[in-house]
Design a protein around this nucleic acid. Sequence first.
RNA 1: CGGGGCGUGGCGCAGUCCGGCUAGCGCGCUUGCAUGGGGUGCAAGAGGUCGGAGGUUCAAAUCCUCUCGCCCCGACCA
Length: 479
Amino acid sequence: MAEEKLPTRNENFSEWYNQLVLRAEMADYAPVRGCMVVRPYGWTLWENMQGELDRRLKETGHVNAAFPILIPLSFFEKEKEHVEGFAPELAVVTHGGGVKLEEPLAVRPTSETIIGFMYAKWIKSWRDLPVLINVWGSVLRWELRTKLFLRTAEFYWQEGHTAHATKDDALEEMYRILDIYADFAINEAAIPVIKGRKSETERFAGAQITTSIEGMMQDKRALQSATSHYFGQNFAKAFNIQYLDKNNTLQFCETTSWGLSTRMIGAIIMVHGDDQGLILPPRIAPIQAVIVPIYKNDAEKTKVMEIADRLFKELKLANIRVKMDDREEVTPGFKYNDWELRGVPLRIEIGPKDLEKGSVALARRDIPGREGKSFVPQTALASHITRLLTEIQSSMLARATTFRDANIHEPGNYDELKQIVQDGWAFAWWCESKDCEAKVKEDTKATIRNIPLDQPGGSGKCIVCGERADKKVYFAKAY
RNA sequence: CGGGGCGUGGCGCAGUCCGGCUAGCGCGCUUGCAUGGGGUGCAAGAGGUCGGAGGUUCAAAUCCUCUCGCCCCGACCA
């Protein structure tokens, strides 16, 4: 029954990641090129993430709705940059009901166009604004190269689309959402992300401003984990989203859109996992604690299971997502490895020795080996575990933050920058010229991840050309 | 689309260069007994027209031609 060992992170990060996803049964490859099957374990994680993000969105006045998956191809022509950006990635339906369609239909790669079309019908007056709609669904982009969760042809996400009366309102919305995403990433996924604005080169097709949260994976590459865009009146003009203001004057709306996808699952795996498998943040883990009962014979089994069942019920009552692993056909040792691979934050072992002492053995997933083990009394177990889960959550965030900060460096000159981005992030002054940005990309393959909102202030010299620079930015290789 | 690699029981592979008899191995699966606090042990068993088509040959997983599919690296990207 000896499962083959996982490849280690250092050996081959990419292979390590793939094996983790497949072996932990998060996802699998679909028969269609570049598509992914999200398996129940992975989907439960996503549902938990959805719950936490959806709550935040609803608390800030957003409502959910659904829009069609098929969009008339002509809709994409209406916004010049948008069509240029997405044309190469569109999948197009040409036939329906056995006959050739008069107008081909695009499978949505994102829904700005069809939502813009609908908003134009719905919005008439300043009283209708703002419109704050969110959509949970999936989209399809014909990616040339795919990787489970990080970039698949079809992926699951939420996309929010809002319309506002003024520029200030729309910008405020864009930043509000960025804050929600960052809060979600930090406090639910335990990923310390950096909020910032994208450079002109990197921004979304059709957007005037694109903001993102960027996280550092354990191979030190950056992952854009969510984006929030401000469109100005671009889409409003393309789709005639207009309203009459208080002075009875016709005005174009200001719109935004923003999205967070199952890519975040990939981020969680790449930020927290170790050579034993996944490590999932307790707040969103499908299973927060697993009970492994241990016994040698039926007499012991009866006694052990009695206690195990009682504790299981207690934990359930305390709203802990607990799982009883009462499989007969595998040994405890196998179960330990199995749940470690799946990233369950806490393991509870109950055996004959514990019966005598009235204790259980706990093992923290985030601290492998003896260090993470403790023996605690069965009494008040639920409250102890609740506390421990909170502690695991915060120590995961702390560890990821320490790792990130240890791998961000400030280059003193261009040569140093080239060195740094080979194995880390560089935080440096940039003059905001496209040429300097392009030069770095050409020389190193690193790009400007974002221009952080949190700026040191003052000014410096562009790390590339030496001219005056007002912004400091992160350069890194990205997924 | 360019470069590289691979298709052999459910999964992972060996065998291919140099053709040869009933195509092997590990894992998993089935059954039984033992075992059980860190990936259990032993025994027995089921399971494959070697990606597809054509050709060469007494004989093809192996050689030749064509074809289909997948993976990795690059260009594109949440």
